[in-house]
Design a protein around this nucleic acid. Structure first.
Length: 592
RNA sequence: GCGCCUGUAGCUCAGCGGAUAGAGCACCCGCCUUCUAAGCGGAUUGUCGAAGGUUCAAAUCCUUCCAGGCGCGCCA
C-alpha cells in the first residue's frame, strides 16, 4: 500500500528530526501519521497534515515543522531514487508528495500477484463474529424491507470475511408462539376452504391471499388427509406443514439473492429443551427479576433501559424478550467475540431491553451490537409506493427481484447507508444506461473482458473487409500473464502503460491510483461496518476506467510493449472490480 | 412528553476534523472511419436546517432550537 509506505517514510523522518533535537521537547510522535489523497491535483498525489497536528505539541508553527520534516524526507532513499519526485510544503502546513511512476506500476504487479486476494485485510484478527439477520417469521413472504436487511447482512458478512474475521451467518426462525398459532388457524381454514368445506376464514389473522399459495403446496404434498383433524391438532398440524413450506420458500428466495446462512436457528428448539426456563432461572439467580401483578419482570431499568420489562405474562406465556434471553444465552455460550443483529429500525425500542437482559445474564453487552436499517420506499412510475402491511400494498422482495434482476436489487440495497431511508427507483434499476450505477459498474467489468478477448481474436478490417490476424496468440498472452505476476519479470514492464501526453497520462495514473485504494477502502468499510462504501468505490473505479479507455488504446498490434503493459493494467482493473463486486454480491459479467 | 434516526445543488445522495464542499439525474453545448457511443468531455447549480461553543482548522465534534421519519404494550 502506497499510503503505508509514505506513512512509514514520514514516521522515520520524524524520528530522525527528533533525534537531532529538532522537534522541541517531543519524545515520541503524539499524533497518528495520516496520509490522505488531496482533492486538488496541485496538492500532489498524496498529502500529510501531521505538521498541523504537531504544532501545538512541539510549540512551533505548522509550516516550520513541515519544513523540517520535508528536509528529512528529502534525504531518504525513496526521494533520492525518484520513487517520490517531489516533496512540497504548502500552507497552512501540509506536506505534499508527488509520486514517480515506479510506485504506481508496483501496484499493477501486486494485483497480479494477489489476484482475488488483492484488498484482503487482517484487521479482523481472526475474531469470531456472528451476524444474525433477516430472521423473519415463517408466516409469509419476505418483503423489500427484509431484502434490505438481507443484503446488508450478506454484504457485511462478505466484507468481514475479506477483512480477516471469522464470520458466521444466522437466521433466527420465530417458529413458536402466538403468531404461529394464528398461522395454524388461518392455514387450516384456508386448507378446508380450498378443499370445498364452507368454513369461515379468521378475520383477524393473516390475509388469505398471502397464504393461499403455500396452502396449495400443502395440499399438493399431503392431499386431504388433514380434513379429518379437528381443533388444536388440526391447526398445529396444518400450521407446521405450512410453516415448513414458507421457510423453504424464504430459504430459496434468499439463496437466489446470493445469501446462504450457516444456521437456521429455530426458536421452538429452545422451548423443546427448556432453554427459556433455564435463562429465566439464571436471571432470577442473578437477582434481576421480580414478580408483580402476576407476571415475572426483568429489572431492566437498573440495567439502562427506560423501564422494567415483562418476561413471563400473567397468562404463563413467555414474552419475546424471554425467548430472546434464551436465544442470546445460547449465542453468548458459543463464544463469539462479536455478535451483530440486523433489525428494522421500527424495532429500535427493543434494543435497550435486549441489552439489559444480556447484562442480567452476566455477559458483556458490548459484544452484542444491533444494526438498524431504515425503511425502503419504492418508486414506480414516478409515484412512491409506500410499504404498509395494513393496506396490503407491501412490495414483496421476489417481485422486485423479478422486475429489476438480482444484481440491481443487491446493488441498490447495498449501496445505501443503513441509517437513511432508501428511495428505490424501480425504473432506474432496470435501465441499461450509465445513470444506473449497478449497470455501469458491470459494464466496466464487461468492457475489460471484451478488450482482453480482443487481444487474441482475429478482427475484420472495416475498409478492406479483410481478416486481420489476432494481435496475440493465446500462447503469447498466457506468457504475458505469467510475467505480470512474476517476481523475476522485467521491473519496468508496466512503465509502458504511460503516455508522454499529459492529457492521457493523467487518466492512466488516475486509474492506477484508484486501483491501489481498494485495500484501504476495504479496511475503512470494515471498521465502520459500511459495506456500501465498496459500492461507491466500484462506481468510481468504473468511471476512472471509462476515462482511461477513451484516451488509451490497449490493443496496439504494432507496439507490443505498450499493448503488453496495458493488457496487464486492464486485467488488474477487471480483477479489482470483481473483488469489490464480490463483496457486495453483484455478479461481474464478461459480456453484456 | 421522552428516546433513536435524518436534514448538504431543483431531485437522489456521497463526504463525517483538514487546503477552493463532491457525484449522478435534470437542463445546455460538443464528441462515433478507432478495443462495446450500453460511452466520454465541457457548462450551470450551494446561507452544508438555525444559532451558539470547542479547535490553528468544523458540513464533520459539543449544546440548544426548528423540521421530518420511527419507536415508546403482560404484540412480535
Amino acid at each position: 500500500m502506497i499510503k503505508e509506505r509514505l506513512k512509514d517514510l514520514v514516521e522515520r523522518a520524524f524520528e530522525q528530526a527528533r533525534f537531532d533535537k529538532k522537534m522541541g521537547e517531543l519524545t515520541e510522535c503524539p499524533e497518528p501519521v495520516v496520509i490522505e489523497q488531496p482533492k486538488l491535483p496541485e496538492h500532489g498525489d498524496f498529502a500529510c497534515g501531521i505538521a498541523l497536528k504537531l504544532a501545538r505539541h512541539a510549540r512551533s508553527s505548522p509550516i516550520q515543522i513541515a519544513n523540517i520534516l520535508a528536509e528529512y524526507i528529502n534525504q531518504t532513499p525513496e526521494t533520492m531514487n525518484g520513487s517520490i519526485t517531489k516533496v512540497e510544503v504548502a500552507n497552512p502546513g501540509f506536506i505534499n508528495f508527488r509520486l514517480g511512476t515506479t510506485w504506481l506500476t508496483d501496484v499493477i504487479k501486486e494485483i497480479h500477484i494477489r489476484k482475488e486476494d488483492f484488498g484482503r485485510d487482517t484487521v479482523g484478527g481472526d475474531k469470531k463474529v456472528l451476524i444474525e439477520y433477516v430472521s423473519a417469521n415463517p408466516t409469509g413472504n419476505l418483503h423489500i424491507g427484509h431484502g434490505r436487511g438481507a443484503v446488508l447482512g450478506s454484504c457485511l458478512s462478505n466484507l468481514f470475511a475479506f477483512a480477516g474475521y471469522k464470520v458466521e451467518q444466522e437466521f433466527y426462525v420465530n417458529d413458536a408462539g402466538a403468531q404461529i398459532a394464528s398461522l395454524g388457524n388461518c392455514a387450516f381454514a384456508c386448507y378446508q376452504r380450498k378443499l370445498g368445506k364452507d368454513v369461515e376464514y379468521p378475520s383477524d389473522g393473516y390475509p388469505e391471499e398471502s397464504l393461499i399459495e403455500y396452502v396449495d403446496q400443502v395440499i399438493e404434498q399431503y392431499g386431504s388427509q388433514f380434513l379429518s383433524l379437528t381443533g388444536d391438532e388440526a391447526a398445529v398440524t396444518v400450521g407446521n406443514a405450512t410453516k415448513k413450506i414458507i421457510q423453504e420458500h424464504q430459504e430459496k428466495l434468499l439463496e437466489r439473492l446470493g445469501i446462504k446462512f450457516d444456521r437456521w436457528f429455530s426458536e421452538s428448539s429452545l422451548h423443546a429443551q427448556n432453554k427459556v426456563d433455564e435463562a429465566m432461572q439464571i436471571l432470577t439467580d442473578n437477582n434481576f427479576t421480580y414478580e408483580a401483578d402476576g407476571a415475572l419482570w426483568l429489572k431492566a431499568k437498573e440495567l439502562g433501559d427506560e423501564r422494567d420489562r415483562v418476561l413471563k405474562k400473567s397468562t404463563g406465556d413467555y414474552t419475546y424478550l424471554a425467548n430472546d434471553a434464551a436465544y442470546h444465552l445460547d449465542k453468548f455460550n458459543r463464544g463469539y467475540d462479536l455478535m451483530i443483529n440486523i433489525w428494522g429500525a421500527d424495532h429500535h425500542g427493543q434494543v435497550p431491553g435486549l441489552k439489559a437482559v444480556v447484562k442480567a445474564l452476566g455477559f458483556d453487552s458490548e459484544k452484542l451490537q444491533v444494526l438498524l436499517t431504515q425503511i425502503v420506499n419504492l418508486n414506480r412510475d414516478g409515484k412512491a409506493v409506500r410499504m404498509s402491511k395494513r393496506r396490503g400494498t407491501v412490495v414483496m422482495l421476489d417481485e422486485v427481484m423479478d422486475e429489476v434482476g438480482v444484481d440491481a436489487v443487491r446493488y441498490f440495497l447495498a449501496e445505501s447507508n443503513p441509517n437513511n431511508p432508501i428511495n428505490f427507483d424501480l425504473e432506474l434499476a432496470k435501465k441499461q444506461k450509465r445513470e444506473n450505477p449497478s449497470f455501469y459498474i458491470q459494464y466496466a467489468h464487461a468492457r475489460c473482458s471484451s478488450i482482453l478477448r480482443k487481444a487474441v481474436e482475429p478482427s475484420i478490417d472495416r475498409e478492406s473487409g479483410e481478416e486481420r490476424p489476432a494481435p496475440l496468440t493465446a500462447e503469447m498472452f498466457e506468457q504475458f500473464k505469467q510475467e505480470y505476476g512474476s517476481s523475476d519479470s522485467d521491473p519496468n514492464l508496466f512503465l509502458a502503460v504511460f503516455d508522454e501526453d499529459p492529457d492521457k497520462f493523467i487518466h492512466q495514473k488516475n486509474l492506477i491510483m484508484r486501483l491501489q485504494a481498494l485495500p484501504e477502502e476495504v479496511r475503512d468499510a470494515a471498521v465502520n461496518w459500511q459495506p456500501g462504501r465498496l459500492s461507491h468505490y466500484a462506481y468510481e473505479l468504473a468511471n476512472t476506467l471509462q476515462k482511461f479507455y477513451e484516451e488509451s488504446q490497449v490493443i496496439i498490434p504494432d507496439n507490443l510493449p505498450v499493448m503488453k503493459a496495458r493488457l496487464g493494467l486492464v486485467m488488474a482493473t477487471r480483477q479489482v472490480l470483481a473483488n469489490a463486486l464480490k463483496i457486495i454480491g453483484v455478479s461481474a459479467p464478461d459480456r453484456m
